[in-house]
């Protein structure tokens, strides 16, 4: 599993980046969600995997006994997942508003505010 997971993460990264590079707003969101997922897994795997043993101290012990999973990446992941959810829901609502206001879901139609007027 330790050897296979990196490849799975790579595949997830590839797929999500390809989705992000689409012109369709909806695909962009899918890509973002997948990208967040891949990043979380990336962190998790980089922090080493421990089969079994959760990061929980047994009732009759005062300190954790090996093997137990590293709690630091897990704490990071929890935060990352929740924040990622905040971003996702914001983006989902944003796409709806954008569609209501502009009548399009094509990203290339939404590049005007940023563009410098070249002919003045």
């Amino acid at each position: 599993m330790e050897l296979i997971l990196p490849f799975i993460i790579g595949i997830l990264f590839s797929a999500s980046l390809y989705l992000i590079l689409h012109r369709h707003f909806f695909k962009l969101i899918l890509g973002l969600i997948l990208f967040g997922l891949a990043t979380n897994l990336f962190l998790f795997v980089i922090g080493r995997l421990t089969r079994g043993g959760s990061a929980i101290i047994e009732p009759d012990e005062n300190v954790a006994v090996e093997p137990f999973a590293d709690p630091v990446p897990q704490a990071l992941l929890l935060t990352a997942i929740v924040i990622g959810f905040g971003i996702q829901s914001f983006t989902i609502v944003l796409i709806k508003r954008v569609y209501q206001s502009f009548g399009t879901t094509d990203l290339d139609d939404m590049n005007t505010t940023d563009q410098i007027e070249e002919n003045h």
């Binding site: 998790f44 995997l49 421990t50 079994g52 990061a55 999973a69 897990q74 929890l78 997942i81």
Partner: peptide, 9 residues
């Protein structure tokens, strides 16, 4: 995550 000891996650 469950398989690798991260039930909370």
């Amino acid at each position: 995550y469950i398989l690798f000891g991260a039930p909370d996650v």
